[in-house]
């Protein structure tokens, strides 16, 4: 890991004023090939030792929010973090927040993921690039996740976990926290269930079909503009045509 990085101040444009509000004066270190302003962001956090249900939901949520145009912020740990990054990468972009310097990586198993995030989005940290990981840094990292996100979704978290810490930071900053309901007999979802009990909005469904979202498109040009890619628009048309939802007549889309 020897590629270049950038040092940014908290009032940099890409943060859209999120860090300024917190009255901070620490530089941030950023690495990645696509460093763009964070217009809409969502933080997805959860335990490293999640159930397969939690992992699936994290993936689907990451994918859904990315397709809606959100940048998914998470902590590049394994488990929920990893899955939400992966889901986001499929449809959009994501940001990884590190608890150590840019020349290090922890945990090892998410290194390939970090590489692909650096290609499509970027990673960010407080620490100098020669600084190795320390336990206390991860608490600070959780703070940064909360600060960068517009709202936080806790997918699966036990009672004592970093995800709850992040949720607390977000509440202190006056940001909204959502939580995914989990099994009541499972320790690893006790924390997220408790958040719901305490008033967090439960995530009850993952919107699946893109159809509703595009129903306002009357012509092919509208659809391409809304989707942003010819191939994906073609995919949608093929799917809708095959299921008999639309009839294509020239450039006009007839919804059935």
């Amino acid at each position: 890991m020897t590629s270049s990085f950038y040092m940014l101040s908290p009032d940099d444009d890409i943060f859209c004023g999120r860090l300024e509000q917190q009255a901070l004066n620490r530089p941030l270190y950023v690495r990645g090939s696509s460093i763009k302003p964070l217009e809409k962001t969502v933080g997805i956090v959860g335990t490293r030792h999640a159930s397969s249900y939690g992992l699936k939901v994290a993936y689907e949520l990451g994918k859904y929010y990315a397709s809606e145009g959100y940048v998914v912020i998470s902590g590049l740990a394994y488990g929920i973090d990893q899955k939400s990054h992966e889901g986001a990468l499929e449809k959009g972009t994501t940001v990884g927040v590190l608890g150590h310097g840019l020349d290090f990586h922890y945990p090892k198993s998410t290194l390939p993921l970090r590489k692909s995030i650096e290609e499509k989005g970027f990673v960010i940290t407080w620490y100098n690039h020669e600084q190795g990981p320390r336990k206390a840094f991860f608490r600070e990292r959780n703070w940064l996740i909360a600060a960068l996100s517009d709202f936080i979704v806790v997918v699966e978290a036990p009672m004592k976990s970093g995800a709850l810490i992040t949720a607390n930071f977000a509440l202190q900053m006056g940001k909204e926290v959502k939580a995914v309901p989990g099994d009541i007999d499972r320790d690893s979802s006790a924390g997220s269930n408790m958040l719901i009990f305490e008033g967090a909005e439960p995530v009850l469904a993952i919107p699946k079909d893109a159809e509703e979202q595009y129903k306002s498109c009357k012509t092919v040009q509208d659809l391409v503009a809304a989707v942003g890619s010819l191939v994906e628009a073609g995919q949608l048309i093929a799917k809708w045509q095959s299921t008999g939802r639309v009839i294509l007549e020239g450039e006009i889309i007839h919804w059935v």
């Binding site: 092919v220 391409v224 010819l230 628009a233 073609g234 995919q235 093929a238 294509l248 020239g250």
Partner: peptide
């Protein structure tokens, strides 16, 4: 269609004829 230039709608239609198997996969 009698069009001289290839437009977005022509491309989209062409692409949609190549996306049936991905749909079935899903």
């Amino acid at each position: 269609e009698g069009a001289h230039d290839i437009g977005i709608n022509h491309l989209i239609e062409a692409i949609s004829y190549r996306q049936v198997i991905p749909w079935l996969r899903s």
